[in-house]
Amino acid sequence: MAFVCFEDVMKIYKMGDMTIKASDGVSFEIERGEFAVITGPSGAGKTTVLNMLGGMDACDGGKIIVDDRRVDQLSRKQLVLYRRNDVGFVFQFYNLIQNLTARENVELAAQICKDPMDPEEVLRAVGLQDRMDNFPAGLSGGEQQRVAIARALAKRPKLLLCDEPTGALDYNTGKNILQLLQDTSRRYNMTVIVITHNSAITPIADRVIRFKNGRVQSMERNMHPEDIRNIEW
């Protein structure tokens, strides 16, 4: 069985009399260690999937399986532990704690899990060996996103979920971040799932899942992902 497995997952939002099917029978699979990209236009249901996968939201039907565990059946408390130990999250707006230095932001995550990586080591790994004691406000967007990635990695997650990680970054910085994510996937054999509306970056992924209207439009495996330096958008 695949490492990540969605089987006919439903998610319905009720807004007054209207029901919106954010996920309308979503099914896909991602193997362990893959660098997957989920893409599609705004409102296609990408983020909903990410929320459910990240244990931040419950589904209304179907199965969500991560590393042979039924995430959809986890209790609230189990979900907390799932997020804590199994999932790393990288946000579009970094979501760093402004009042903590880069090192402290990483420590914040590290100190709650069982076997964290050394914060300084992770920060060095993301190339921030010189900026560790800076506050987020004193870092550039790319640097902040690196801190965010380091914070996610420090927990040694099974799954690294990234929501539009380059959305707030300029082109080059975005590229660097994607590079970092790809490298991370390779180096730690970590399953990395990136959500983006930018389909231009799909060539670098091991697997590309396209969403449209709350459904998976296509899923393809890329046996020869391109190097990020070679693509442009």
Partner: peptide, 13 residues
């Protein structure tokens, strides 16, 4: 946001 982030990071209630 900060609190939501902490939750996403797996902080218990």
């Amino acid at each position: 946001r900060e609190i939501a982030t902490l939750k996403v990071l797996g902080f218990k209630d």
